[in-house]
Amino acid sequence: MSTTTGDKASGAAPQTGADGGRPRAWATWALLAAAAAIAALPLLIGAGAHLEEPFSGADAQAEETVEEIAPSYEPWFSPLYEAPSAEIESGLFALQAAVGAGIIGYTLGVLRTRRKLRSGAPAASPAPDGNGPAPGTS
């Protein structure tokens, strides 16, 4: 019995959940949409409209609160390098995100290709004992 379920799994059958199959694409899209909606909601309802400076950074607000609580406190060290303008700073933030996203995309690409190559080659021959994948058990 276990062999038959194993064969079905490797045969790329569109498994649905019950026995821990692959995630369903529509649910993944729904999760992404929910994340986007939550991120956009504050802008849509105008959550920052009543503020002088809407959607300012929490880090900067904390600095202001420090100055409120301890007006005499002087930061005793300043950043070694500070971006000369907001544009350049946002560029560096974009660079940070781009490097990260690039690596994630590379990883997903490599894994996908690897899986395709693997499922293309051995799926035909070693179905009986390939069921318990050799690299996994060793």
């Binding site: 991120a39 504050p42 802008l43 309802i45 409209a49 950074g57 929490a58 880090d59």
Partner: peptide, 9 residues
């Protein structure tokens, strides 16, 4: 990312 508090983090 903006938050409902009117700030972002």
């Amino acid at each position: 990312i903006p938050s409902v508090t009117g700030s972002s983090s």
